[in-house]
């Protein structure tokens, strides 16, 4: 059996479909004995990325395309939409802010990318007017 597994998944932009992608990521991570905390972090990063695609891409096909590549050492996930691309104000969250907070540091929206960056080892965002791909990698911690 090969040490590398590639899975391609396309999900519609329906509520809670991000859980299907998160489950796929968790199964692959568990297959390679990632620890429980890493599996949860992977699930959360996938969920946030899929939600961002669903909420902000404005894609006509209303689909999110996910590629998983897992090896003995790491899981790489690429999440792509065919929407209008993302702008700088989306990236830093300023376009997504809700009403002003009682506590200014408790920003309500636009935190998905911050979460992904904090939980994953490498994050790359590629965006154009034809769509966006968020790629991230989680390395397996030494046992």
């Amino acid at each position: 059996m090969s040490n590398e597994h590639k899975v391609l998944l396309t999900i519609p932009m329906y509520p809670d479909m991000e859980l299907a992608a998160a489950k796929t990521g968790s199964v692959l991570a568990e297959l390679k004995d990632f620890n429980e905390e890493a599996v949860e972090e992977i699930q959360l990063a996938i969920i946030e990325s899929c939600i961002n695609a669903s909420e902000h891409s404005q894609s006509e096909d209303k689909e999110v395309h996910i590629q998983f590549l897992v090896t003995d050492d790491q899981l790489e996930v690429k999440i792509t939409d065919r929407g209008v691309g993302i702008t700088t104000d989306t990236l830093d969250g300023t376009r997504l802010l809700g009403r002003p907070s009682v506590h200014p540091d408790l920003r309500k929206r636009g935190r998905g990318l911050q979460i992904i960056r904090a939980l994953m080892d490498e994050v790359v965002i590629e965006s154009s007017p034809n769509g966006t791909t968020v790629s991230f990698t989680k390395k397996k911690s030494p046992q």
Binding site: E48, I51, V102, I115
Partner: peptide
Amino acid sequence: TLINSIGISILIEIIEALSE
């Protein structure tokens, strides 16, 4: 088991309501 960023936003609203 899972809390997404929208869920966290709602928790923040509860914190704010209590702070007031």
